[in-house]
Structure formats: structure tokens, C-alpha cells
Nucleic acid binder design. Structure first.
Lengths: 228, 228
DNA sequence: CGTGGTGTTGAATTACCTCAATAAGCGTGG
DNA sequence: CCACGCTTATTGAGGTAATTCAACACCACG
């Protein structure tokens, strides 16, 4: 499980890439020195561990990543899933506050944190972008606090499915990139409860399943489950 | 409960104050135009509501504030308590994403959000401070996600007590500034469970109580309850 | 002294968990 | 293409931590 792999991101990939964000809003705009290096991880490979020095910042190109925290007895809380286009691993402070692992074979582009910080110290525009990213992470975390603190199992799962759908393009038919365990550890439930809840939602006609991961949502019904 | 009070913070308090943060790290340093206006709220008074335009940013001077989110059926999650020295209400985006209310009679200093944003657009230093604040909020929220998703009632209450103690100065004897309901709604529990857990912790010798709010912690014991 | 808000305690209920068995995917190699 | 083994997912039965409902105690304040 804990694949102890030492990254040496300085050696590989010679092709450097300047990386923009979503069309229009280039990431770290106007900072030519902030170029990213492509990098890849295998399924279940650790990208960085909690407590390690935060040397890099990552942007998902293909695949998916989870970040989590663990208690010493193994209880785990997944704080976020990161899909193509998402940035993760951006800390201020010297160390990572959680662990990141690839859900599947994943390509990322990495940036040196120091470089970003130096750019932010000079450019108000870059610094504002960092603020924006932290703020949107904060919004997500606060919404999730409400979910974890006050919502029932069905509500959690329904909310989660709609969220993933949206982030995957909103086609309402897709393959979940994560296991039941990952979902459970994100929603503060057990795998069994997640599984049962999927079954229940299917019975209620709120979704269709094909082979575990593949789902097709009836969004209106799901929305009625969450109702707020 | 929902005291609908219209604030007109433009009219009152003539005494303007420039406000620094913790000693050494002045808040919005080097920005003389960012001065705060003192303002006060009564116990249980709403400071701003979810969805309202985010016109001001607030810094607690005396008293205490809670910020929360609600579901339409009334379930509530308190996302944070704000004690003297803390900043709250800082959004990026036009509207507040939660409601803020005074726990007790509270004095704050308010800043115009636009002013701060304008300063950030010009000064990398100010922008970096905004990033820092958002990032520390994010760290808190992520720790709290772990608590809400994976910890038992005793662990939640014990963690909470140690946190409040620390933020109040770490004397381990203090009066909780919030009700059982507030604590419950912060920890994702019911008032009864919080109450029972206090009793249990007292039996276990992890704390002493005097009249509901007043507590005296045996920190070593509490730490053993949380254990990690 | 009442009165209303706040906190505690008890008894019964329940949503979710734990333990355990079975089934369904899925990659590998014959 | 099927058999095999391994991982992942589903389902059932029983247990439990936390909730719900309800009664009572405690102040603070008129």
C-alpha cells in the first residue's frame, strides 16, 4: 500500500511546458519563469506524504489524485479529489499538511513552490491568484464541513455524485474514478454504507449502475434527495 | 432568533483606527488608506447573512463571533468561532458564503472589502497576506473535516476544549464563550451528546466544571483521549 | 419567588457500523 | 477464450454510538 518511491523530478522529462489554466485565465500569468515540468505517477503511487517538505505544486493533466489526512490508528479523511485541470499541493509553509496519491495512472505538471512564492512576492497579480485558489479551496472545505457535520448518508452520497458529475463535465453518465473506500473516506462513512446507499438510490430510480464504477444519474431525482 | 437588524456602519463611530495584527506583523502593512472603523454588536445579533453582499471585513476586538451555514430545514453547521484578534468575513467574490452572529456583546473593527481588494491589486505584500489568511482558514477547515468525518464524540469534544483553551491563552481554566448548542453545531453532534460527553470527561478526571460554562482542563488527560 | 433560557440526565429509538459471507470485475497466463 | 486468483463491491444479520423524546435541575433576572 505505502509504495515508498523516491521522486527525482529534476532528472526526467526534458520537455518543459508553460501551463495555462482554463482558457482565458492563464495560470501564473505573465511569469515566464514559471514553467511546469511534466511528470507521471502510477495507480496508487504516493505523490507526497504528510509532513514532507513542500517542494512542488502540482496540476493534474490526466488521471486523478486524492489528498488525505490520517489518524495514527488508520482512520482516514480524504480532503479532496483532484481531476484534470485542478491544482493541488499548494501550501504556504514549508511542509505538506496531507498526503497525495494517484487514483489511477496520472500525469501532472509540477512547479517549484519557491518559484511561485518568489513570483508572488513581486507580482500582486500572481499573489492574488494564490489568494483566489486558497479561497476556493476554503469554500469547498466549508461546504464539506456542513455535509460531514449535518447530512445523512443518502444526502452525502447524492451530493457527492452530483459534484463528481459536474466536475467531469455534467454529462450525467460517467465512471467514478475512485473506489468505494475512497468515497467512504471522503464522506465520513463506511464502504458498506456507501454501497447500500448506491443500491437504495438505484431502487429509488435516482441512478443506474453498470459494473460498480459506471453510473448514470437522474439528476432531478438526486436533487430532490438533497433538497436544499 | 433571526434578529433582522439593518446595519448602517457608515453613520456611527467617528474615531478611526489603524489596526495592526499580532505584534510584528501589522495587518495590511504599509497601507495607510486601510483604516478600520470600530463597531459593536449585541449578544445574538446578526452581523451579516449568507448571500448578502460582502461589503466589509471584520476583526474581533472584544467578545466572540460565530459563522455558520444552514440547510433549509434548519440543520446548522458552525464553520468557525472568532475570538479577539481574529479576522472574519473576508471573501473573495461579491457575497458572504455564511452567516455571522455575535456570541456575546462584541466589538469589532470593520474594513471595506473593496479597499482591501484594491490594495491587494497594487501591493504584492497585501495580496500575500490575503493568501496567508485564506490558507490558514483552509488548514483549519481541513483539520475540522477530519474531526467531523472520522472522530468520535469524546474525541471531538476533547479536541474542541483544547483548541479553545489554546486560543484563549492556554491557561487551561476559562469560561466557554458559547452555548452547548453552538458547540454541538460546530462538532456535528447534539446538545445532549455534548452535555453527556462533558459529564463523562469530568468523571474521567479530564476536566472540572463550575456552573455550565466554566471549565478547568487536565490537559494531559484530554490529550490522551484524543491521542494522536 | 416565578419565569424563561440553558444545561443535565434517563429511556427508547435509529442510523450507521461491524463482522461475515457471497458475488461481481478484472488482469494474467495458460 | 476460459480458468484462476485477487481485488473491489454487494448484501445480510446483529451491535452500538449517537440521536430523539421527555423530564428535571439550574441559574440569572425581572
Amino acid at each position: 500500500m505505502a509504495a515508498e518511491i523516491t521522486l527525482s523530478p529534476t532528472s526526467p522529462a526534458t520537455a518543459k511546458v508553460t501551463v495555462g489554466g482554463k482558457p482565458g485565465t492563464a495560470l501564473f500569468a505573465g511569469c515566464p519563469e514559471l514553467i511546469g515540468t511534466p511528470f507521471a505517477y502510477d495507480r496508487e503511487e504516493e505523490i507526497y506524504g504528510e509532513g514532507e517538505e513542500a517542494e512542488f505544486v502540482y496540476k493534474v493533466v490526466r488521471g486523478a489524485v486524492r489528498t488525505h489526512k490520517v489518524l495514527n490508528d488508520g482512520r482516514r479523511q480524504i480532503t479532496g479529489f483532484h481531476l484534470p485541470g485542478d491544482l493541488f499541493g499548494l501550501e504556504q509553509g514549508e511542509t505538506h499538511r496531507h498526503t497525495a496519491e494517484a487514483l489511477s495512472d496520472t500525469q501532472v505538471v509540477i512547479f517549484k513552490r519557491r518559484g511561485i512564492e518568489r513570483a508572488a512576492a513581486r507580482s500582486a497579480e500572481v499573489a492574488c491568484q494564490l489568494w483566489t485558489m486558497a479561497a476556493s479551496g476554503l469554500r469547498y472545505a466549508q461546504d464539506h464541513m456542513l455535509l460531514l457535520g449535518r447530512r445523512s448518508a443518502v444526502e452525502r452520497v447524492a451530493t457527492f455524485l452530483m459534484e463528481v458529475d459536474e466536475r467531469l463535465g455534467g454529462t450525467s453518465t460517467f465512471a467514478l474514478p475512485m473506489t468505494r473506500r475512497d468515497i467512504a473516506d471522503h464522506l465520513g462513512l463506511t464502504i458498506e454504507t456507501v454501497s447500500r446507499t448506491f443500491s437504495q438510490l438505484e431502487e429509488d430510480g435516482a441512478l443506474l449502475r453498470a459494473g460498480g464504477r459506471q453510473v448514470s444519474l437522474r439528476r432531478a431525482r438526486l436533487r430532490r434527495v438533497v433538497e436544499d
